[in-house]
């Protein structure tokens, strides 16, 4: 969910209360397949040593009985290895239900979970999707933090993901 606040009277777009952060839009393609299940999706940030420094989102079958939906978390192989396997699921503010085809927008604020504080440096945002009886795909977008100015970077998947847009807000 993206929340934008405009201070109409003053015409100020960026109020002092608008902290730095990241807006992300993730497009999940509509697929013509006989059996479709919404994909599991993980979003995280790695530093330049490939260490996961922030787990931003994990969309999976959170509502299945007895945590059964966790069975397929390891299908997101890269996320599982870099971050997932050492987390105790579900994680508050990170775990969420699966999303269907369409463009999904999420925002993260610096200093607040799950983004927290990033030290100045080079990072990569990674989005990984894995679908039951389907495929797996990752899209990586390198970026520099903190941004000098508002900036939108993009990546593109071609099977399980489509357009990924990363907006950095100073």
């Amino acid at each position: 969910m993206k929340a934008s606040y405009f201070l109409a009277a003053s015409g100020l777009v960026a109020a002092p209360s608008m902290a730095a952060g990241i807006d992300l839009s993730i497009e999940i393609p509509r697929l013509q397949v006989a059996e479709y299940h919404k994909p599991y999706v993980a979003v995280w940030i790695e530093d330049d040593g490939r260490k996961a420094v922030a787990n931003l989102d994990v969309w999976y079958d959170t509502d299945m009985r007895g945590g059964e939906g966790e069975k397929w978390l390891s299908d997101m192989r890269l996320w599982w290895r870099r971050a997932g396997r050492s987390l105790d699921m579900p994680v508050d503010g990170v775990s969420g239900p699966t999303q269907g085809p369409g463009t999904h927008e999420v925002s993260y604020t610096e200093g607040r979970r799950p983004l927290g504080d990033l030290k100045p440096g080079k990072y990569t945002l990674v989005v990984e999707a894995a679908r039951e009886v389907g495929g797996r795909e990752t899209v990586s977008i390198p970026f520099q933090w903190p941004p000098q100015r508002a900036q939108t970077l993009s990546g593109e998947g071609d099977s399980e993901l489509r357009a990924i847009k990363l907006t950095l807000k100073p």
């Binding site: 945590g67 069975k71 192989r77």
Partner: peptide, 8 residues
């Protein structure tokens, strides 16, 4: 060989 969940 690599599994997730509370039990498997």
């Amino acid at each position: 060989t690599v599994l997730s969940g509370d039990s498997e």
